[in-house]
Design a protein around this nucleic acid. Structure first.
Length: 877
RNA sequence: GGGCGCUUAGCUCAGUUGGUUCAGAGCACUUGGUUUACACCCAAGGGGUCGGGGGUUCGAAUCCCUCAGCGCCCACCA
C-alpha cells in the first residue's frame, strides 16, 4: 500500500508515546551508568499548559532525550507546586461562585475544598506535557505538599530556627489587602501610575500661619503623627519645633526635621504616617513618633478612620479629598507619575503594613551561592548575562519574609503555649512541642490542647527552594541511595522572571542543606511574545491554545517551531508560521523516507559516484555532529537544530539523495541502499531530541535497526573526524552544478536536454566526481580541452574555465555585461590590495601570514583580470 | 536614582581571541520549474557603507569615548 505523501502526526504521536511508556523507557533507577538529572520547574498544580510551558518543557525534553541517547541514565522528575497564594485565590474565587465565603469556613473545611480542587485539576498540566512528548519519569511525579515534601519543609524550618536564622519580627511588610496576606518583596510588582498629588495646608498650633504638605494619600492624614522638613531648608527653619494641627481629626503633631526629606519635592514638607509607609516608619522610629494604624486588614479604614470607618482606602481617599476641599484645606492638586506596588497574584495595590511576621536571615546563605555562580563556575548561567543580575541581587540581599496569612500551604511549626507574643516553641511535631513547652514554661501540666499552632503558612517558595533535594528525599534522608545518585542535578531550565524567587534560593538551599550545588547549569528561556512583541496574556487574547497548536502542526512541528527562534534568554516572537516550518520539515523527512522505502533493491555493483557521494555525506555528517555537540555544550539549542535542519534538508535530501537516486523505475544497488539506510538512521538519532515522534515512527519502519529496538534508547552518533579537503572538493562540485543550473536557466535550456561541458584549465575532479556532476545536471560528457571554445557559453571557477557548446545562436550580450562588471570590480579590488602592499606600515606591522595572504590576493586578481580581458576580447570579435 | 544589556538584510537573529574563508543563517521576497519522494516541493537570484559621530590601529561589525533609541533588573522619593 502506498504511503501518503502527507505526514499525519496525530495517530503516530499517540502510538509512540504509549509505546515508550509501556516499555518503561522514561523510567529511571540508579545503576552503573552516570546519571543525568533534570527536575522540572513545578507548574502550579491547577495550571494549564501555556506557551511558556511549551517552550520550557520542550527544551528540557530535548536535553533529557539527548542525554539518554548519549548513554546517561536520564532522569527527568516531574511534579507540581501547590502555589499557595495563587491556588488559594482560585479556590476562594470558585467558592464565591457557589456563594461560599472563605471567612465562613473553618480552616479544615477550606483546606478540604482546596484539596478537592487539587485532585480535580492537579495533573491536568502533566497530561498535557505528555502530548508535547515530554519524557519525564512519571513514576516520580511529586507535589510540593506530599507528605515527605511537607516533612522536608518542616525540618528545614525547625533547623533554621534553632540555628537562629529564622526570627519573628514586628515589621513593615507588603500587605495584599485582597488576599489579606503579606508578600515577599519579590512578589510586589511596581507599576507606573498617574495619581493626584494633593497639597494640603495644616494650621499651626500657635495660630501663626499654615504649613502646606503634599501627599498622594490624603486619607492617611488620620494616621499622621508628625510633619517633617529638611533641616537645611531655609523656608521652614523657623517652623521646626512648633506644632501643627492635622485637619479633620484635629491631632496636634510636631514639626521635625530630617535629611531624608527632599527639598525639591512638593512643598518640601512631608507628612509622616509611620503606620502606612516604609520611610515614615523609619522616621518614626528615629524621632520616637506615635504609630497610628488606621486600616483594617482588608484595606478599609478602622475606627481611627473616624467617619470613614468601613470605607475602602480608595473610596475614602476621594471622600476625604472632597471634605478637605470643603473645609478649605486643599490648596491644589497636581497630576504626577509614580510607581505603585501591586500584588503579583491578585493585582491589588500593596499596602505597607506593620505586623508580626516570620523572617529568614539571608546574608550568610547568600555567600556560598554567590561564590558558586560568580567565582568558581560551579554553576553556569546561560546566557551569562544573568549572572550580573544575580550578583546585584545577591549582594544586596534582604531578609526573606516567609510567613503568609493564608491557609493553603505548610503551616508554620511554631506552637504558642501562653498569651505572650514570645510564648512559643518551634518543633517538628505537636508532641515534641509539648515537651519543649513544658520545659520552657515550667508548667508540667500543660496539655496538648493548650498548644496553639501559628496560623500562618509558609511562602510557597519555602517549599520549592528545596525541590531538587526534596524530590529525592534528600532533606530528611540525605544518605539515601537515590539522592546520592541523582543529586546534584545537571540542568535547570526556567524563565529569568523567577531568578530570585526560585533559582537563587535553590542555590542557597543547596549549599545550606546539602553542602553542594543543586545543579550545574541554568538555562534561561525568554518570554514568549506575539509577533508585535506583546507579552502573551489572557486579556489580550493573543496566546494560542497550546493543545490546538499540537493538533494543527503536530507536537514535533510545534517543538521545532518553538526552538527555531528561541536562543537562550532571548524573547521568542511566536508565530504560527514557525510551527508551519516545523511541520514542513517533518513532511520533508517523511517524504525522503517514502522515497528510500519505495526503492527496489538489486544486487548490482555500486556505481563509483554513489560511493563517493556517500563518503562525502559521511564526512559532512561527522562535521555536523561535531558542530551540533558543540552547540549543545554551549546550550545553543536553536543552532543545534538549525545545523541539523540544514544537514538533513540540504545535504542529505537535496544533494545526497539526488546524487544517488536511481533513474525512474530503476532499482538501486544494494550497497548504496544499505549505506543510505544506515545514514538515514544516523540522521534520525540526531533529530530525535527535537522531533521524537516522527523519528521514532520512521526508525521503527526502517529496515536495519542494529542494536536498539527503540530509537528513544539508541546511541548518539560520535564524530569519527572528517576530512575538510574532501568536503571542500565536493563543495566545488556543488559550485559547478550551481553554475550549470544558472546557465541552463539563463539560456532556457531545459533539464531534459543534455549538454556537454568542456573544461579549459585544471580540472581537479576525479572521474567519480565528474560522474556526480553529470548526473545532477544531466550532462552527456564533461572533458578537458586544450583550447578555449569560441562562441560557447562559459563560466569560471578559480582559474578554470568551463564551456558549454550550444547549437543555436548564443546570446552573449548578458555575459559580456557581467564580465565587464566583474572586471571593473576586480580592478578596484586589485587597487585596494596593492595599496595595502605598498603601505610600509602595513607590511612592517602586520604578521607575515597576513601579508602573504594579501600577496596571494594580488596574484589571483592579476590572473583573473587577464582571463577576463581575454574572454571579453573573444566575445567582442 | 543605581546597575546590566541591546541596536547587523523586509522580519527574527549568528558573528567566540581585531586580519584569507567576514559581512552570514533561517524566514520573507523576486524569477523559473510539476507525468519521474515532497508545491508543506525544486532551482536560481536580489537585498545590509553592521544605530549616529569621534578615537585607537597598518587594519574595526569586533577595542575605547560620546550621542540617540530600545529593553531588563534593582531601589522607600512623599
Amino acid at each position: 500500500m502506498a504511503i501518503s505523501s502527507k505526514y499525519d502526526p496525530s495517530e503516530i504521536e499517540h502510538k509512540w508515546y504509549s509505546y515508550w511508556m509501556d516499555n518503561g523507557y522514561f523510567y529511571s533507577k540508579p545503576d552503573s551508568r552516570p546519571a543525568y538529572t533534570i527536575v522540572i520547574p513545578p507548574p502550579n498544580v491547577t495550571g494549564i499548559l501555556h506557551m511558556g510551558h511549551m517552550l520550557n518543557n520542550t527544551i528540557q525534553d530535548i536535553l533529557i532525550r539527548r542525554a539518554r541517547l548519549l548513554g546517561f541514565n536520564a532522569c527527568w522528575v516531574p511534579g507540581t507546586d501547590h502555589a499557595s497564594i495563587a491556588t488559594e485565590a482560585k479556590v476562594v474565587a470558585k467558592l464565591k461562585e457557589s456563594g461560599i465565603e472563605k471567612k465562613d469556613l473553618s480552616r479544615e473545611k477550606f483546606i478540604g475544598h482546596a484539596w478537592n480542587w487539587t485532585h480535580e485539576y492537579g495533573g491536568v498540566i502533566l497530561e498535557q506535557l505528555k502530548k508535547l512528548g515530554c519524557s519525564c519519569d512519571w513514576e516520580r511525579t511529586k507535589f510540593t505538599m506530599d507528605e515527605d515534601m511537607n516533612a522536608a519543609v518542616i525540618k528545614t524550618f525547625v533547623d533554621l530556627y534553632r540555628e537562629g536564622k529564622i526570627y519573628r519580627g514586628f515589621r513593615m511588610v507588603n500587605w495584599d489587602p485582597e488576599a489579606q496576606t503579606t508578600l515577599s518583596d519579590e512578589e510586589v510588582i511596581y507599576e507606573e501610575k498617574q495619581d493626584l498629588l494633593y497639597y494640603l495646608s495644616y494650621e499651626l498650633e500657635d495660630g501663626s500661619g499654615t504649613v502646606t504638605i503634599a501627599t498622594t494619600r490624603p486619607e492617611t492624614i488620620l494616621g499622621d503623627t508628625a510633619i517633617c522638613v529638611n533641616p537645611n531648608d531655609e523656608r521652614y527653619k523657623s517652623l521646626v519645633g512648633k506644632y501643627a494641627i492635622v485637619p479633620v481629626c484635629g491631632r496636634r503633631v510636631p514639626i521635625i526635621s530630617d535629611d531624608y526629606v527632599d527639598i525639591e519635592f512638593g512643598t518640601g514638607c512631608l507628612k509622616v504616617t509611620p503606620a502606612h509607609d516604609m520611610n515614615d516608619k523609619i522616621l518614626g522610629e528615629k524621632h520616637n513618633l506615635e504609630v497610628i494604624d488606621i486600616l483594617n486588614p482588608d484595606g478599609t479604614l478602622n475606627q481611627l478612620g473616624l467617619h470613614y470607618e468601613g470605607q475602602d482606602r480608595a473610596v475614602a481617599r476621594k471622600a476625604m479629598a472632597k471634605e478637605l476641599e470643603q473645609i478649605g484645606v486643599l490648596v491644589k492638586t497636581e497630576l504626577i507619575t509614580h510607581k505603585v506596588g501591586t500584588s503579583e497574584r491578585t493585582k491589588a495595590i500593596i499596602e505597607p503594613r506593620l505586623s508580626d511576621q516570620w523572617f529568614l536571615k539571608m546574608e550568610d546563605l547568600a555567600e556560598p551561592a554567590i561564590e558558586a555562580v560568580l567565582s568558581s563556575d560551579a554553576i553556569n548561567f546561560f546566557p551569562k548575562k544573568f549572572e550580573n543580575t544575580y550578583r546585584h541581587w545577591m549582594s544586596n540581599i534582604r531578609d526573606w519574609n516567609i510567613s503568609r496569612q493564608l491557609w493553603w500551604g505548610q503551616q508554620i511549626p511554631a506552637y504558642y503555649y501562653g498569651e505572650g507574643n514570645n510564648d512559643f516553641v518551634v518543633a517538628t511535631s505537636k508532641t515534641e512541642a509539648l515537651d519543649m513547652a513544658r520545659t520552657i514554661s515550667g508548667k508540667v501540666d500543660l496539655r496538648i490542647e493548650d498548644l496553639r499552632q501559628d496560623a500562618d503558612v509558609l511562602d510557597t517558595w519555602f517549599s520549592s527552594w528545596l525541590w531538587p533535594m526534596s524530590v529525592f528525599d534528600g532533606i530528611n534522608h540525605p544518605e539515601n541511595e537515590e539522592f546520592k545518585y541523582y543529586y546534584p542535578t545537571n540542568d535547570l531550565v526556567t524563565g529569568p522572571d523567577i531568578l530570585f524567587f526560585w533559582v537563587a534560593r535553590m542555590i542557597m538551599a543547596g549549599y545550606k542543606f546539602s553542602e553542594q550545588k543543586p545543579f550545574s547549569n541554568v538555562y534561561f528561556t525568554g518570554l514568549v511574545r506575539d509577533k508585535q512583541r506583546r507579552k502573551m496574556s489572557k486579556s489580550l487574547g493573543n496566546s494560542p491554545d497550546a493543545l490546538q497548536l499540537i493538533e494543527d502542526f503536530g507536537a514535533d512541528g510545534v517543538r521545532v517551531g518553538l526552538l527555531l527562534s528561541a536562543a537562550a534568554g532571548n524573547d521568542l516572537l511566536f508565530d504560527d508560521a514557525l510551527c508551519q516550518q516545523g511541520k514542513g520539515f517533518a513532511n520533508k523527512i517523511w517524504n525522503a523516507f517514502r522515497l528510500v522505502k519505495g526503492w527496489e533493491v538489486s544486487d548490482t555493483n555500486q556505481p563509483k559516484e554513489n560511493e563517493l557521494a556517500l563518503e562525502w555525506y559521511t564526512h559532512k555528517f561527522d562535521q555536523a555532529i561535531a558542530e551540533i555537540d558543540d552547540h549543545f555544550d554551549k546550550y545553543r539549542l536553536s543552532d543545534a537544530l538549525m545545523t541539523t535542519y540544514k544537514l538533513i534538508w540540504d545535504d542529505f535530501c537535496s544533494w545526497l539523495l539526488e546524487a544517488i537516486k536511481p533513474e525512474y523505475g530503476q532499482p538501486i544497488d544494494c550497497t548504496t541502499y544499505d549505506r543510505i539506510i544506515v545514514l538515514f538512521e544516523q540522521n534520525l538519532k540526531i533529530l530525535h531530541p527535537f522531533m521524537p515522534f516522527l523519528t521514532e515512527e520512521i526508525w521503527q519502519q526502517n529496515a536495519i535497526r542494529q542494536n536498539h529496538e527503540a530509537l528513544v534508547v539508541a546511541d548518539w552518533p560520535k564524530s569519527n573526524g572528517f576530512d575538510p579537503n574532501f568536503i571542500a572538493q565536493f563543495e566545488s562540485v556543488k559550485e559547478v552544478v550551481g553554475q550549470l543550473r544558472a546557465l541552463r536557466k539563463s539560456q532556457q535550456i531545459p533539464f531534459k536536454e543534455q549538454i556537454q561541458v568542456l573544461v579549459y584549465g585544471n580540472m581537479d575532479f576525479s572521474a567519480e566526481l565528474v560522474g556526480v556532476i553529470k548526473k545532477l545536471t544531466n550532462l552527456s560528457e564533461m572533458k578537458t580541452v586544450n583550447q578555449k571554445e569560441d562562441g560557447a557559453l562559459s563560466f569560471r571557477i578559480g582559474s578554470t574555465e568551463y564551456f558549454v557548446p550550444v547549437s543555436g545562436p548564443v546570446d552573449t550580450e548578458g555575459e559580456l555585461i557581467q564580465l565587464k562588471e566583474e572586471l571593473k570590480y576586480t580592478k578596484g579590488f586589485l587597487k585596494a590590495v596593492q595599496g595595502k602592499l605598498s603601505n610600509e606600515r602595513f607590511v612592517g606591522n602586520a604578521p607575515e601570514s597576513v601579508v602573504a595572504i594579501e600577496k596571494q590576493k594580488e596574484k589571483d586578481a592579476l590572473e583573473k583580470i587577464e582571463m577576463l580581458q581575454n574572454r571579453i576580447e573573444s566575445l567582442e570579435i
